[in-house]
């Protein structure tokens, strides 16, 4: 029953460290008496959990159909060029992690990007650059 709080606990760890360190995996494995490989594999199922440190800002840009036909591809390229990283990578200064993601649920207001938990809708190239520049 208590194991139902797994996702919540992992979110807390993720938010605290920017990733899920091994000792946290070990801890939960011991507590619930399940193989640590299983905990690890579960974490790796979910896109929002990381087993490696992420940047201070996780940039999520939607490229699913509705955003895609509203030019999210160009937004993605602008961000990639600006940050100098590809999907799933973190900038050398550990400031940004870029994720090209599937639908964020703002299909009527695309293109959409998230900076950590903050959502920006109807973004343009200039807007995203401003947003990124304002991340300090």
């Amino acid at each position: 029953m208590e194991y139902a709080s797994f996702l919540e606990r992992m979110h807390t760890v993720q938010d605290t460290y920017g990733y899920i360190p091994e000792n946290e995996i070990d801890k939960i494995a011991k507590e619930f008496n399940i193989p640590r490989a299983k905990v690890y594999g579960t974490i790796r199922f979910y896109s929002m959990f990381y087993t490696e440190p992420t940047g201070k800002y996780i940039i999520r840009v939607c490229d699913s159909l509705s955003c895609h036909i509203n030019q999210s591809k160009e937004i993605v390229q602008i961000i990639k060029d600006y940050l100098g990283v590809e999907h799933g990578q973190t900038t050398a200064d550990k400031k940004f992690t870029l994720e090209i993601v599937e639908c964020l649920g703002y299909c009527g207001e695309g293109p959409v990007m998230m900076v950590n938990e903050h959502v920006y809708t109807r973004v343009s190239g200039n807007m995203v650059l401003d947003i990124l520049k304002n991340c300090v």
Partner: peptide, 11 residues
């Protein structure tokens, strides 16, 4: 867990 691209009614 709304996630099908194009869907945002639950939100």
């Amino acid at each position: 867990d709304e996630g099908e691209p194009g869907t945002f009614k639950d939100r």
